[in-house]
Write a protein that binds this DNA or RNA. Structure first.
Lengths: 245, 245
DNA sequence: TGGACTAGCTGGTAATGACCACTTAACCAC
DNA sequence: GTGGTTAAGTGGTCATTACCAGCTAGTCCA
């Protein structure tokens, strides 16, 4: 006989504990900047070993919920810092987090050979076709950005408008359909001025200032999967990030 | 007798091991995307226990040098991703990392009461004086940004032009003189247009596009210590960041 | 009164042992 | 050949035990 499968049914203890602690923090049971019980206390309270406790705490520290001071204790982060690092998110998640209603107009989905500069970034040989998605992004119904994505897929891997409408997010399609999980990305930001076409699509004047974002996204095996260029309306978009060291 | 002091003389094993591994990676001994020895192998090679091995590897993963795949192994990151997360750095460090020669013109250092919006961000009561430093930032000798810092210091804590010239970096002064270690920051970026004064100082035309960065920096105990506003010349500055999830 | 010491907290590092979950490739039966 | 099984490798989780290092408050002595 082989082993019973039951994958994922057993949630790791450290994760369960982290969830409990997170609950107490978010419920306000432990005030910001106040210490949580010491690791030895948590050991007896929850009847788990100290390494497990520490693993939970380290997880919550990376999430930005806690911080440690050697010799003093472990403390709850002030609320402003509890949002965690700037995370790799899709446009939809990003906008939702800002309290805006995301939307999009898909202008085209096609197989095409992109400029060489894009192929180099995607580490593909010259002449390779990729999937190109051209969209207008909406915030609360009004244009907020122009987005062009180049996705490194084989000819047999196809994305349809139906996929996009069903999943709602490109990243969900990549994960569920192709097992490509975006885990890391390089992003640059600079200012640009709207040309006539961009101005028209964004419903602003020609020459208006824009925020230009270029992002190269890597999957779980650290291969580039997507290069995306977004032109944001300067008057409707601010970029937010959290830095740590 | 009390204990012999010798603090810091013993570098942790996991850190020593991490340094060794990092050396091998940077020397090209292990190629990008190729697996490093398994944790059990490293255990015998270096004669340290597996938890310590894992701690070393986890450290190098946060640094962006390695990544793991469950059931397959631990791999060297492709070179492009080895630079690690966007880190909380001073302007000087930032520019050096870009291969430019940083410089500055200190326009003023003074004790003053800043606008209420700044005091709120610094979590100080209305009317509180703070230290304000107004600088022109130079890249390779030419203006690249206008920077105004508001630093939350008590009246007895003074920063002088001499301090600035000696230490070279505000963050070094905060660390060495006041034991305030910047560990985390919130930053927003948006576009702006140069007014007459800004244009003159940056040696550009009025109305030229600028990148506006506003940053609130927190010290090791998660209290706000500095609010800084930087106006970058749009034609000379790109913002770079690394995202993970 | 004031400063040094110290005890008892805190988190930080480390070794040992065990078992689970995932991946791969070799194997074997069909 | 094809397809399922299996074994051996990988990282992932967890308990136990021990000691080190930084911080703080109380104590004790000058």
């Amino acid at each position: 006989m082989s082993r019973v499968v039951l994958p994922h049914t057993a949630i790791p203890k450290y994760y369960q504990l982290a969830t409990i602690l997170q609950g107490k923090i978010e419920a306000g049971e432990w005030a910001p900047r106040s210490p949580i019980p010491s690791e030895r206390q948590l050991e007896t309270i929850y009847n788990v070993s100290r390494p497990t406790i520490r693993q939970s705490i380290e997880y919550l520290i990376t999430q930005g919920l806690l911080y440690r001071e050697h010799g003093r204790g472990t403390f709850v982060s002030p609320e402003k810092l509890q949002k965690g690092l700037r995370e790799l998110t899709s446009f939809s998640e990003d906008l939702l987090a800002r309290g805006m209603r995301p939307g999009q107009v898909i202008r085209s989905i096609e197989r095409t050979v992109p400029p060489d500069s894009v192929l180099q970034r995607l580490e593909l040989p010259p002449g390779s076709p990729v999937t190109r998605i051209d969209r207008i992004r909406l915030g609360d119904g009004a244009p907020i950005g122009l987005q062009v994505s180049y996705i490194s897929l084989s000819p047999s891997q196809e994305i349809t408008v139906q996929d996009m409408e069903r999943a709602g997010s490109l990243y969900r399609i990549l994960e569920e359909k192709f097992n490509l999980i975006p885990t890391e990305a390089d992003e640059t930001l600079e200012v640009a001025l709207a040309n006539r076409e961009e101005a028209s699509l964004l419903e602003i004047n020609e020459g208006s200032p824009l925020l230009l974002s270029e992002r190269l996204t890597f999957s779980q095996d650290r291969r580039p999967v997507e290069f995306v260029r977004i032109l944001y309306r300067g008057d409707r978009y601010r970029y937010y990030t959290r830095l740590k060291r």
